[in-house]
Design a protein around this nucleic acid. Structure first.
Length: 116
RNA sequence: UGAGUAAAUUGAAUGAACGCAAACAGGGGCUAAAGCCUGUUUGAGGAAAGUCCGGGCUCCACAGGGCAGGGUGCUGGCUAAUGACCAGUGAGGGUGACCUCAAGGAUAGUGCCACAGAAAUGCAGACCGCCUAAGCUGUUCUUUUGGACAGCCGGUAAGGAUGGAACGGCGGGGUAAGAGCCCACCAGCAGCCAGGCGACUGGCUGGCUAGGUAAACCCCACUUGGAGCAAGACCGAAUAGAGAAAUGUUAGAGGUGGCCCGCCUCAUUUCCGGGUUAGGUCGCAGGACGUGCCUGGCAACAGGCAUGCUAGAUAGAUGUUCAUUUUCAACAGAACCCGGCUUAUAGGUUUGCUCGACUG
RNA sequence: GCGGGUGUAGCUCAGUGGUAGAGCGUUGGCUUCCCAAGCCAGUUAUGUGGGUUCGAUUCCCAUCACCCGCU
């Protein structure tokens, strides 16, 4: 689990990120990201009711959090991230998910370096 | 031992490492608090679910009156309260243990009872059948009284046929044929007596008979105000508006119920102080609480004593890896709280009782 | 957390206690040289489980699924 500082918590922050952020889609999740003007990164998670019951939704969220914690180094400071779980996430293995998350998390970093 | 029936209980465990949330203590820091670091402790359920009922709590009058509407509907008890629960009554099902039942009123009134059937509620109704006793007509026999046959006028609810249901059932007497017309028994109704707190049960007497449907309208009895913790209270930048007192109460509007009444507020003046929204703090977990024992009660439950404190978040906390055991483990995740009900659920354990078979 | 609604044929909808209907679809036939259109005939259903009633799509209870609103 991540500490509170590294989590995206406010409804406004979510709305702003959805409206003005960049999008990356994979089989397991959709990722929005956007610069936040802070020194650290923040990550939010969103799991829709369509994926299943409360137990299933909680499990999916925990898996995502655990993977993010292990790959914390991949996230770029100064950005907000939102992970939206998709249907395929229920069947995948944690190792595969870890790979995908690491790749996705590094993406904003690459772009800014190119722009620089 | 097989089949069944009624309940109770459990809902993988242990250790290590890395993490999350809350509380407490210390450190550091600061106007102060929080964030930060270290340590300790604690951290989802029997259904947390569905939201089908009931209550606490909060605001609207400390919830008021009337009408309308809703709910409940055998009796007694229990409870904070209920449509729940317990004990009983009645009806129905099962060989039995046991199970099921919204189970007041059809003599307050209204409606409906398709098709079939003669007739479906009006003390109604004659299709087939049964009968010609009384009355009338004809034929015929006879000395006559009168007899026989046919018909009319009729009588008849015993039998057949229709239907879920045909105006008590069955037997005997009776009769032209029949009929509670009369009688016995049974069902049902009314009254009285006895038992029971009561639902009701038993007995006696009476007059002979009253269709079903109220989960159709309705009547009767009891009961019910509305909204909901996103309730509500406080802090509070910007913006500008709220409160108190006095006066006024014609009209209209608002205060979350359908309508009426009632209650409160508005309008003006004076005083000075803070509505709504983003956000934050509280509400928020010590409670109709859990466990054990004792007492009362058939029981639900109540009382007493001892002991325990056992989640409290706000994008919303239980995960990952490894090891061991015995099978790799169902349904499933707290969001103000509690009592019930209902639904989902891999398996494991225990108890009472019934029926059958075998053995002694 | 709270409130409201709907389940009827493959699809869209009717149906206020007495044999469940319409349109589109679909199948077969007729018509045409062939197709379309047209005509005729058929096919398929009351979400599930109980109860009340002689009889339930309809009345009552429970349950399941779906949809909508407040926030």
């Amino acid at each position: 689990m991540l500490k509170k500082v590294y989590r995206l918590r406010k409804r406004r922050d979510f709305r702003r990120t959805y409206q003005k952020g960049k999008i990356l889609k994979t089989r397991y999740f959709v990722l929005y990201w956007r610069p936040n003007g802070l020194k650290n990164y923040r990550i939010g998670f969103s799991v829709s009711k369509k994926l299943g019951s409360a137990v299933i939704r909680n499990r999916v969220k925990r898996q995502l959090r655990e993977v993010c914690r292990r790959k914390a180094a991949a996230f770029v400071p100064g950005f907000d991230y939102i992970f939206i779980a998709r249907f395929g996430i229920k069947e995948t293995s944690p190792a595969l998910l870890e790979l995908e998350v690491a790749k996705a998390a590094a993406k904003p970093g690459l772009k800014t370096e190119v722009e620089k």
